[in-house]
Design a protein around this nucleic acid. Structure first.
Length: 430
RNA sequence: GCCGCCGUAGCUUAGUAGGCUGGAGCGGCCGGCUGUUAACCGGCAGGUCGCAGGUUCGAAUCCUGCCGGCGGCGCCA
């Protein structure tokens, strides 16, 4: 039986023979001895292959093959301070499963080259760590929703209308007609709540925005929730708990990976609710008092958002935006109809917006009026309007940019490092 | 869409006030080494200088256009 490397990196295995399989991570020959650093999904371990032990022929074969060749080997574990992970295997037998010559990724590599070779770069320890963190994040999201009474649902990806007013949709040919790729499941989630009350989905969203920033992808993973009877504050409370649950889970399961990525864990470890809540108005004043050039009615630009969020070490909910700068479906605040009952959640350390959400308009007349003001044709949204005709209820929802969350949690410099196959304005391969 | 930058060997790059044969490291190939840490030592091979046109006695270097890419803004999760 083969074992994983992480399992045998332990004093319990000293002096015992183990069987390992994996890929050559590094290889160095010193005359009649070859050091192979073997890699599998779990970790790396240095293996020593001596000519006198495995014979001339085998030795020559191993000498010939390159980095990323796949191997099966048997050997005895020994504690060895000189080895990269503290233990070493004295190899008794080795079998080359699939040789690799001229692996394209070597010592010097540019960002662009690694993106072109992402299919191979996934094997790197960096990507291995990021992928494991992603795995934990996605799992934690499902866990949270399911433990809190949400049903998982699936909306369509081919759609005919926009959710976000200003956003650009990807148009695709559809049997002689036009369809678009979904940019949010929100409107569909709103239909599900009349059956299931609390629903969520994790799905890709597509935005044809020609954004060239460290926080934008054209295809990204969107975790969205929608809840019947919830008001803005109820929604924020769940989101707060969701984020804390994810952070806890990542700290529990992925501390090693975060450390490997040189993530400073203090902010994550100290994270607790409640998050900071600020009305848009207060945020503008706060920004102005901190020397940021912004006026009431301006949308928060990336510079402002970054400058503001560098001053906080926990996430901030920004609520009550002016009605003009938010999409039509947000419910106006009854106490101040010039603002809407919405919220954005900004991640600290300069990372910025990771969640957008709010309470939806549930009265038919209000919705029709808002659509008219925005120049939208209710017929295009007939099914969305219908929800306000047949037993409408207050409800709220939100969308979490999962890749953005991973980007922040892992402390990455660009969102393209947070997703295995980033799709940006200029990249659709590999 | 706007602003800025880049394109030289498989990879990372030096070289651009125009001038001899475009240098190097890594990787590769050949050889050496029993404690290496993306080892080291000796040797060899490897270049349409993104593409097209122009200026010039002469262009990797200057000009024009195109192609590809990077960073940021706007927009958003």
């Amino acid at each position: 039986m083969f074992q994983h490397i992480s399992d045998v990196l332990s004093d319990d295995f000293i002096g015992k023979e183990v069987a390992l399989r994996g890929w050559i991570y590094r290889k160095r020959r010193m005359g009649k001895i070859i050091f192979v650093v073997l890699r599998d999904s779990s970790d790396i371990i240095q293996c020593v292959i001596e000519k006198r032990k495995i014979g001339n022929e085998k030795f020559k074969e191993v000498d010939k093959i390159g980095v990323e060749s796949s191997l099966e080997l048997k050997g005895v574990v020994r504690k060895e301070e000189r080895a990269p992970t503290g233990y070493e295997v004295d190899v008794n037998d080795v079998n080359i499963v699939g040789p690799s010559y001229l692996f394209p990724i070597t010592k010097d590599k540019s960002d662009d080259f690694l993106l072109d070779n992402r299919h191979l770069w996934l094997r790197s320890r960096e990507m291995n760590a990021i992928l494991k963190i992603r795995h934990t994040v996605f799992g934690a999201i499902h866990e949270f929703f399911r433990e809190n009474g949400y049903y998982e649902v699936q909306g369509p990806i081919f759609v005919t209308g926009a959710v976000e007013g200003g956003s650009t949709l990807f148009e695709v040919p559809y049997f002689g007609k036009k369809a678009y790729l979904s940019q949010s499941a929100q409107f569909y989630l709103e239909t599900f709540i009349f059956s299931l009350e609390k629903v969520y989905t994790i799905a890709p969203s597509f935005r044809a925005e020609k954004s060239r920033t460290r926080r934008h992808l054209t295809e990204y993973w969107h975790a969205e929730g929608e809840v019947a009877w919830y008001h803005n504050e109820d929604m924020m409370r769940d989101e707060e708990e969701l984020i804390i649950h994810i952070v806890q889970k990542v700290l529990e399961e992925r501390e090693r990976e975060l450390k490997f990525l040189n993530r400073n864990l203090e902010i994550l470890k100290n994270l607790e609710k409640p998050f900071i809540r600020m009305k848009y108005q207060e945020l503008i004043e706060f920004a102005q008092n901190n020397g940021i050039d912004i006026e009431y009615g301006d949308d928060l630009g990336a510079d402002e958002e970054t400058a503001i969020m560098e001053k906080f070490d926990k996430p901030v909910f920004v609520t009550h935006y002016p009605i003009e700068i938010k999409p039509f479906y947000h419910r106006p605040d009854p106490d101040n109809p010039n603002t809407v009952l919405c919220h954005d959640l900004l991640a600290p350390e300069g990372y910025g917006e990771i969640i957008g959400g709010g309470e939806r308009i549930y009265k038919l007349e209000v919705l029709l009026k808002r659509m008219e003001e925005e120049g939208l044709n209710p017929e295009d949204y007939y099914w969305y309007v219908d929800l306000r005709k047949y037993g409408s209820i207050p409800h709220a929802g939100f969308g979490l940019g999962v890749d953005r969350l991973v980007w922040w949690l892992a402390g990455l410099s660009h969102i393209k490092y947070a997703i295995p196959y980033p799709r940006t304005i200029r990249r659709t391969k590999p």
